[in-house]
Simulated assay, not measured.
Amino acid sequence: MSQSFTPADVASHNSAEKGLYIIVDNNVYDVTNFIDEHPGGAKILKRVAGKDASKQFWKYHNESVLKKYSPKLKIGEVKEAAKL
């Protein structure tokens, strides 16, 4: 089952101790255990952890990458806080 996250929830997961979450197109991915496998290296994932990495992701990847890794890494979606 997919969880709902606020941008603040994702932002709090920006270190190896707290977990490394990134947002790509409003989907939340836990890349904590993927950093050693990432072909571009761990450094870039650590740099974008806790943030929306959509722009950086699409600059270097195509949709096939998401299809391959989504089942393993996707943990939920970003739901904006209700606007009053």
Rank of each mutant, 00 (worst) to 15 (best):
37 E>W: 08
18 K>I: 09
47 R>E: 13
47 R>W: 11
38 H>L: 07
44 I>M: 07
53 A>S: 05
52 D>V: 02
29 Y>E: 01
83 K>A: 14
45 L>I: 10
27 N>Y: 04
78 V>G: 12
52 D>E: 13
15 S>P: 01
75 I>Q: 15
2 S>V: 15
30 D>C: 00
81 A>R: 12
72 K>R: 15
5 F>T: 14
38 H>G: 00
58 W>A: 01
42 A>M: 00
16 A>N: 10
23 I>K: 01
7 P>H: 03
76 G>L: 08
20 L>N: 03
1 M>P: 06
67 K>V: 03
74 K>A: 08
79 K>I: 15
18 K>S: 14
70 S>D: 15
34 F>M: 08
79 K>Q: 15
26 N>G: 10
31 V>Y: 09
71 P>W: 12
51 K>H: 07
40 G>I: 03
39 P>M: 05
57 F>Q: 06
69 Y>N: 09
44 I>G: 04
51 K>Q: 13
67 K>N: 11
12 S>R: 09
1 M>S: 11
53 A>L: 09
29 Y>W: 06
20 L>M: 01
40 G>P: 01
62 N>R: 03
22 I>N: 02
64 S>L: 09
51 K>V: 13
73 L>W: 08
60 Y>K: 07
42 A>R: 10
8 A>N: 05
1 M>A: 11
5 F>M: 01
67 K>T: 02
77 E>D: 15
31 V>N: 01
50 G>V: 10
44 I>Y: 00
74 K>S: 13
12 S>N: 05
49 A>I: 08
38 H>I: 01
84 L>I: 06
28 V>I: 00
69 Y>H: 11
35 I>H: 00
64 S>N: 11
59 K>S: 12
82 A>P: 10
27 N>D: 14
39 P>R: 05
32 T>H: 03
39 P>I: 00
75 I>W: 14
68 K>V: 04
54 S>H: 03
66 L>H: 08
51 K>T: 09
17 E>D: 08
83 K>F: 10
48 V>Y: 15
79 K>S: 15
79 K>M: 15
79 K>G: 14
61 H>L: 04
17 E>V: 12
81 A>D: 12
5 F>C: 14
70 S>M: 13
4 S>R: 11
62 N>E: 04
80 E>V: 08
53 A>C: 07
51 K>C: 02
67 K>L: 08
36 D>M: 09
4 S>A: 14
40 G>V: 03
53 A>Q: 01
2 S>R: 15
57 F>R: 13
16 A>H: 09
28 V>E: 00
52 D>F: 05
16 A>V: 11
41 G>A: 05
28 V>D: 06
69 Y>E: 02
55 K>P: 06
15 S>Y: 05
5 F>R: 08
33 N>H: 14
77 E>P: 14
49 A>K: 00
13 H>P: 06
4 S>V: 13
30 D>S: 08
67 K>E: 08
16 A>R: 12
17 E>G: 06
20 L>A: 08
5 F>I: 07
76 G>I: 00
56 Q>E: 12
77 E>S: 15
51 K>R: 15
80 E>R: 13
